[in-house]
């Protein structure tokens, strides 16, 4: 299963302040560890939101509204992400705990989210149960 570790933006990352050499080294070492364990799929850092745009749909079916960055609420913004492939949720948590504090200054925040995969979309118990019921119904109709 795939998980995304989302590094939240901070006032520093939004101001375009690069991480210290120490933080940078720690992060690089961590990424190497992920690669050596064969679990890293992708990792990228994003430019600050001053570089971004937002497209919103204030009215359903209406025209999109375009807003240029920067955006203010730093906690809701993301600064980077790391995508990993692991065997269990616990393993993902373990890797997330090993990620170095991305910012320091008490602002570092990592969010761990599981990625939807086709299997989950098609192979859930509800759907399977419905399908079984449907099959049974069809079979009964044929016999009738």
């Amino acid at each position: 299963m795939r998980f995304m570790m989302i590094v939240k933006a901070t006032s520093d990352s939004e101001a375009g302040v690069l991480p210290s050499q120490e933080q940078f080294d720690a992060m690089q070492k961590y990424n190497e560890e992920l690669v050596r364990a064969g679990v890293l799929l992708a990792a990228d850092g994003l430019m600050s939101s001053s570089n971004g745009i937002r497209i919103s749909y204030p009215e359903p079916g209406g025209k999109p509204k375009i807003m240029d960055g920067p955006f203010t609420e730093a906690k809701e913004l993301i600064a980077g992400y790391t995508l990993i492939e692991v065997k269990s949720r616990e393993e993902a948590i373990e890797w997330a705990l090993r990620m170095p504090d991305p910012h320091g200054f008490g602002q570092g925040e990592i969010e761990l989210r599981q990625v939807f995969e086709i299997e989950e979309l098609t192979n859930n118990d509800d759907l399977l149960a419905k399908e079984t019921a449907l099959r049974k119904q069809v079979k009964e109709q044929r016999q009738a």
């Binding site: 364990a37 065997k87 269990s88 616990e90 393993e91 948590i93 373990e94 890797w95």
Partner: peptide
């Protein structure tokens, strides 16, 4: 469960 995950790593 956590130890399982650590063991795997």
């Amino acid at each position: 469960r956590t130890i399982d995950a650590i063991w795997r790593i």
